[in-house]
Design a binder for these strands. Structure first.
Lengths: 185, 185
DNA sequence: AAGGCCATGTAAGTAGTTACATGATTGA
DNA sequence: TCAATCATGTAACTACTTACATGGCCTT
């Protein structure tokens, strides 16, 4: 139940249409909770029906832009959600699962995948640090900016973690396995 | 499409019934790809229909244990999946989203949540390190064990990352926000 | 008037979650 | 024989993904 709250947050930051939200999800909120435009339009409809947001007056025909803003009930819902008790979800990572499978059926073809992931994480890290330099250079940031910076630093820290772990994994892959190889001599 | 492959991996490690799989997911494979018993039974049915696994001869009535083992086609499918090209999924983390929302609607009530998550990650780290000491103490591990250890170290690294980040976040929370507080004098 | 993009949607399918049902076995 | 637990499932729902449809606007 996080998508509606991600949308409420985005709309509070700035009232937007569905497509504008989609764009912002692609480069900001979506770093931590991604969504496609189909999900967003559907969810906007539900939120409007639930009385948490409403469309700003506009020609309501197809192909026309409809901007939404958050109603007091929507802000209240979001405020409650922020402090609601939610257990952390366990890790769900297909690559780790694939390594585990590789321990059983063999590691053939996995190395290029690790390399691809390494490249991808390096690119993501570069994007985050660019945002950090652009948006969080203030000497005395506001409380809100300090929170947003904290969130970004989580993203940065995770990318750094994966880069280090993938490097270690690649080193392990490139070095011949010890236990199951023919020994020389 | 990872659950069937998680199950194939588990069954190759050791042929099992649905409930045994559920238990193993709770304490091993599930650390990286969790699943409930309902998912597992449904998926076992699909895998059997697809000819990737088959049930060992057993009374096929309700309430009786049915153990499965992987067929050659299942092993082939898993082997292919291991090297298949898959982009890494973006982060999906409700807590980060909540911090971001807190930057808009206020951070009231979030601190206890951060503390709860910190406790939870410390417990998970303790569980992982216990497994590491128990299962990966060998001086000359086999290639398979080195892979499995690599996976476990990813889990350990992630827990350490979250513990550090949450500690930083709590420090930020306990120190009065700079920008939006009444100044003394 | 044709093609491309902007903008909003529908439909169908897959994956995961939550709640409940039911038979078999075991120990009090 | 009753309750608890083991073991396997069904049903309904929610969330997410993928593919496609449609109308409006702008440029050529």
């Amino acid at each position: 139940m996080s998508l509606p709250h991600a949308i409420l947050t985005a709309l509070l930051e700035k009232p937007s249409s569905g497509l504008e939200l989609t764009r912002r999800f692609d480069r900001s909120i979506g770093f931590f909770w991604s969504a496609t435009h189909q999900q967003i339009y559907r969810e906007l409809g539900k939120l409007e029906q639930a009385g948490l947001i409403h469309a700003l007056p506009q020609p309501p025909s197809r192909g026309q832009k409809r901007a939404y803003e958050v109603l007091p009930a929507g802000r209240a819902e979001l405020t409650g959600w922020v402090s609601r008790s939610q257990d952390p979800k366990p890790i769900r990572d297909a690559l780790l699962l694939r390594l585990r499978a590789a321990a059983v059926v063999g590691r053939d073809g996995l190395e290029p995948e690790l390399e691809r992931h390494l490249v991808s994480h390096r690119r993501q890290l570069a994007e985050y640090t660019a945002i950090e330099e652009r948006d969080f250079a203030a000497v005395e940031p506001s409380g809100e900016d300090r929170l947003r910076h904290l969130v970004l630093r989580a993203g940065i820290g995770l990318e750094i973690f994966w880069i280090e772990w993938l490097s270690e994994a690649l080193a392990e892959f490139r070095q011949p396995p010890a236990g199951d190889q023919v020994h020389p001599g």
